[in-house]
Design a protein around this nucleic acid. Structure first.
Length: 520
RNA sequence: GGCGCUUUCAUCUAGCGGUUAGGAUACCGGCCUCUCACGCCGGGUACACGAGUUCGAGUCUCGUAGGCGCUACCA
């Protein structure tokens, strides 16, 4: 193995929004590149013209921009190895296909879709390989002269890779160790199609990785079975193969299968970094898949969570900055088995990063929510204080309004459970036999006491109120919680004098008295 | 069906021949407290199964079973 400078790549197909599993693959490539002072390339593998989706490329670029993952070379980033879109590299692939053809390591095949289907129908487990290629329509069975004649006559063809059977192909995987696969189970893969003059993934991938001087291929486990083919292709060209590392797959939260876009709908969380809008092909209706960004997840949380899904630094650290991850990342510490996606854990990460993020993000979000709910956000300072009080109890910004609505709008109804517990009629203390006034009366008395107070500062108000409660021989909880219900509408929220500070004297007393009247 | 990868708490995982099997999320309980959260403290739950190797196996080997992936002129 030579000591080439580290070059890795992320090479998605622009077939739609970027799946969260792809995000993790790219993140690992990024961490690896940065740790080794190497380069990360961004290549677009659009060799399947049938599945090309406009906008997907831009979506992917925007996603990584949001996540803070940067590239050094590639589509939209420039570099000396371009072009970086495979559809713009036709001539390059043609040249290398010819190299293989000339060396007798690949051949022309003319079988139509129908003929191939018929062969598969006829023979169980049909495979286009050494045992069957003699019966098919290709330059080996037909002879090169006939093949050239067919090509000249305009017959569409493909070029297939000639696999020699019976050889154990070794793939050295940085995560899984040595994987051995016998070449007999490999079929003569199509490398090139004359119909669109494009190569298939396998050929384009090898040629590009070689030309772009890629040293490490870090990709999903779904590629493991075809990695022997890739090894064979490198060998056929006489090129040094890169090191491989096949990452475990991301699995659905429960049950079976890998994480799919349907799981997002099923479990109520996004599986894409950004929202993706599209037209439903069947109904013609505009639809969209939700994204982490639009759902209020912070990029730091998504990255941190994803990094630990399949890798860990070997210590007990969970919260990591990107720089720490870059320092500690280790392919050898990646797990080998698939990881179930646990959205609760992601939310915990998000909760953490929400506490340390720029508060203005939450201030703006809450302001928006207040307006949407027809209330008055007053001013930035007011909203900022509320955010400071409430952010520790949310996992997502969208939960803000439900938590803090009472700071902006008086309760219109009172929650039943809270009333049952804290809004009581007059009674007698079972132990002392003393009369206990109703909640309504206690709050009314409290209002009179508060009315007389000149200084409405919670810090000075609190000891006075406590003193007053003691002098009346009331229970602190009974008075404060009844009062709380009148202000909030239920038994929740921050310390009560923090609420009255924000609401002000007039509004606080008004709410209490309105409640007394309503609950009479 | 064939081939490959894989298997420690519900979930993400630590562990690389000798551990009371550790951490995190979730869950439960307690503390704090005017409520709800946060926070802190505590708790339960795991080595898929069966054979070997070894004085000793979660750790090594082989089977079995389960899970996942691939098996296209898709990537």
């Amino acid at each position: 193995m030579s000591n080439r400078p580290v070059v890795v790549r992320f090479a998605p197909s622009p077939t739609g929004p970027l799946h969260i599993g792809g995000v993790r693959t790219c993140l690992y490539n990024y961490l690896f590149a940065r740790q080794h002072g190497g380069k990360l390339l961004f290549r677009i593998e659009d060799t399947d013209s049938q599945r090309f989706v406009p906008g997907a490329e831009q979506y992917i670029i925007e996603s990584f921009k949001w996540l803070g993952i940067t590239f050094d070379e590639g589509v939209s980033f420039g570099g000396d190895h371009g072009p970086y879109r495979q559809s713009e590299r036709r001539e390059i692939y043609k040249k290398y296909v010819q190299v293989l053809l000339d060396a007798g390591k690949a051949y022309y095949a003319f079988d139509t879709k129908e003929e191939l289907d018929a062969a598969r129908e006829k023979t169980a487990n049909f495979q286009y390989d050494a045992s069957t290629r003699g019966q098919m329509r290709n330059s080996i069975a037909l002879g090169m002269d006939e093949a050239q004649r067919l090509i000249a006559a305009g017959e569409p063809y493909v070029v297939r890779f000639l696999i020699e059977p019976g050889e154990d192909v070794l793939v050295n995987d940085l995560i899984r160790g040595e994987v051995k696969i016998n070449s007999s189970i490999l079929d003569d893969k199509v490398l090139y199609k004359s119909a669109d003059e494009l190569p298939t993934y396998h050929l384009a991938n090898i040629v590009d990785d070689h030309l772009m001087e890629v040293t490490h291929v870090i990709r999903g486990e779904e590629w493991l079975p075809s990695s022997p083919l890739h090894v064979l292709l490198y060998r056929a060209f006489g090129w040094e193969a890169p090191q491989f590392a096949h990452l475990p797959l991301l699995l659905a939260p429960e049950g079976n299968g890998k994480l799919s876009k349907r799981d997002g709908d099923k479990y109520g969380f996004p599986v894409f970094p950004l929202q993706w809008n599209f037209i439903d092909k069947e109904t013609g209706e505009p639809k969209s898949y939700s994204g982490y960004r639009e759902s209020g997840y912070l990029p730091e949380a998504v990255v941190n969570f994803l990094a630990l899904l399949g890798w860990n630094p070997g210590n007990d650290q969970d919260i990591m900055t990107m720089d720490e991850m870059i320092r500690m990342f280790d392919l050898g510490k990646c797990s080998k088995n698939g990881a179930h996606f646990d959205v609760k854990r992601l939310q915990w990460f998000n909760h953490h990063y929400l506490q340390v993020c720029d508060e203005q993000i939450l201030v703006d979000e809450l302001k928006k929510q207040v307006v949407e709910n027809g209330a008055d956000p007053k001013n930035d300072e007011y909203v900022k204080v509320v955010v400071g009080l409430m952010k520790e109890r949310i996992n997502l910004p969208k939960e803000l309004w439900a938590q803090c609505n009472f700071f902006f709008a008086a309760p219109e109804a009172y929650e039943e459970k809270s009333l049952k517990k804290w809004w009581k009629p007059a009674s007698t203390n079972a132990e002392t036999g003393a009369a206990v006034p109703s909640s309504s009366q206690m709050v009314a008395e409290l209002c009179d006491f508060l009315e007389a107070q000149e200084d409405w500062n919670g810090a000075t108000l609190e000891p006075k109120v406590m003193e007053w409660i003691a002098s009346k021989e009331y229970k602190v909880g009974a008075v404060m919680n009844a009062f709380r219900v009148t202000l909030v509408g239920e038994a929740r929220g921050p310390q009560i004098f923090l609420i009255t500070d924000q609401l002000g004297k007039e509004e606080s007393l008004r709410r209490a008295r309105v409640a007394i009247e309503r609950l009479a």
